[in-house]
C-alpha cells in the first residue's frame, strides 16, 4: 500500500509542478501570475473538448499520446516512494525506466511526424537528436549512484543521501539529474516552454496539432515526467531511507517543490541557449558524470 502511495501522490500532485514554476516566474518578473492550479483547470477543460484531427494523420496521431502517457506512468512505477521501495523493482530497473521514457518519446515523435507538418517534423528531429545525446549522461549519472548502492535497483540507489564529505564527487549526481530534468523536459536553457510558437523549438512544437483529450494526455504526461525527474533529484539528495516515514514524506514533498522553484528561478534568470550549444551543455554534463563515475569507481 505504502509503495503505491508515491504513484498516487505523483498522479495527483504532478500538475502542481508546472503551476509552481509559472508562479515563480511570474513573481520574479513582478506579475501575479496564473493560479497555482492552472494546469488542473487546463486538463479538465481539455478532457471535455472534442477531437480535431489532421486530414493527413493516420492512427498514430491518437495512439501516440496514449502510449506516451502510459509509458511515463510505467517509469513512475519504478521510482521508490520516500518511505518504501517501488512497487516493482529489480536489479538494473533504471534501464527499464530510461527506456520507458524513450518509448514515451518515440510515441510523441511519431505522432508529430504523422501530421506531415514541417514545423512539427523540426521539433521531432531535435527531440530525437538531443535525447539521444542525453541518454548516456543519464546512464552515467545513475551508474555513479549504483556503484556504492546496496542493490542495483532504483529503490536501492535512491534515498541513500549523499555519502559523506569524503566523496565530494557524489554531489554532482543531483546536479546532473537536474540538468537532465531541464533537457528532457525541454525547459530553459535547452528550450523555451513559454510559447507554442516561434520561441519554442523542441517539445511544444511537436504537439501543435493535438487537441482535446490528446492534448490533455500530453500535458499530463509532461507533468508526470517533470515529477519523475524532480523526484529523482530529490531522492538522490535526501537520505529519506533513514528517516521516519512522515518526516521522509514531508522532506520529499518539500524537496520536489524546491526543485520546481529552482526550475522557475533558472527560467527567470537565463536565456535559452542557441541550439548548437545544447550538445555542448550535454557534453559538459557527460564529462562531469564520467568524472563522478570514475572517481566513485576509483575510491
Amino acid at each position: 500500500m505504502n509503495a503505491w502511495l508515491h504513484i498516487l501522490a505523483a498522479l495527483v500532485l504532478a500538475p502542481l509542478i508546472p503551476g509552481i514554476i509559472n508562479r515563480v516566474k511570474a513573481r520574479m518578473s513582478g506579475r501575479v501570475g496564473k493560479p497555482l492550479l492552472q494546469t488542473y483547470f487546463d486538463l479538465a477543460k481539455l478532457t471535455r473538448k472534442g477531437l480535431v484531427e489532421s486530414h493527413t494523420a493516420s492512427f498514430m496521431l491518437g495512439v501516440g499520446p496514449a502510449v506516451s502517457l502510459a509509458a511515463v506512468c510505467g517509469a513512475l512505477c519504478l521510482l521508490p516512494s520516500p518511505a518504501s521501495p517501488a512497487p516493482a523493482s529489480f536489479g538494473g530497473d533504471f534501464m527499464l525506466a530510461a527506456y520507458c521514457l524513450g518509448l514515451s518519446r518515440l510515441a510523441l515523435i511519431l505522432a508529430a511526424l504523422d501530421t506531415g507538418s514541417s514545423f512539427e517534423g523540426m521539433g521531432a528531429s531535435r527531440e530525437a537528436a538531443f535525447s539521444a545525446l542525453a541518454e548516456p549522461v543519464l546512464f552515467l549519472a545513475l551508474l555513479a549512484l549504483a556503484v556504492d548502492a546496496p542493490s542495483l535497483s532504483l529503490s536501492g540507489m535512491l534515498g541513500q543521501g549523499l555519502s559523506g564529505a569524503l566523496a565530494p564527487e557524489r554531489l554532482f549526481v543531483p546536479l546532473l539529474l537536474f540538468i537532465l530534468l531541464l533537457t528532457e523536459n525541454c525547459r530553459i536553457p535547452v528550450d523555451d516552454p513559454n510559447t507554442h510558437l516561434e520561441l519554442t523549438m523542441i517539445h511544444e512544437v511537436m504537439v501543435l496539432d493535438h487537441s482535446g483529450p490528446d492534448m490533455a494526455m500530453i500535458s499530463y504526461g509532461a507533468a508526470l515526467k517533470l515529477w519523475f525527474f524532480a523526484a529523482a533529484v530529490t531522492l538522490s539528495l535526501l537520505p529519506v531511507q533513514a528517516m521516519p516515514p512522515l518526516a521522509a514524506w514531508a522532506a520529499f514533498l518539500a524537496g520536489v517543490a524546491l526543485v520546481a522553484v529552482a526550475v522557475g528561478l533558472i527560467e527567470s534568470s537565463m536565456a535559452r541557449l542557441r541550439l548548437l550549444r545544447v550538445p555542448r551543455l550535454l557534453g559538459s554534463a557527460g564529462a562531469l558524470a564520467a568524472l563522478s563515475l570514475v572517481l566513485t569507481v576509483w575510491r
Binding site: T47, R48, L51, V52, E53, S54, H55, S118, L208, P213
Partner: peptide, 15 residues
C-alpha cells in the same frame, strides 16, 4: 471522449 464531444478533420496547421 471523441464520441461524446465530437470529432472532426481539419488540415494540418501550416504556420
Amino acid at each position: 471522449a471523441g464520441a461524446a464531444h465530437g470529432r472532426r478533420r481539419e488540415p494540418t496547421w501550416g504556420c
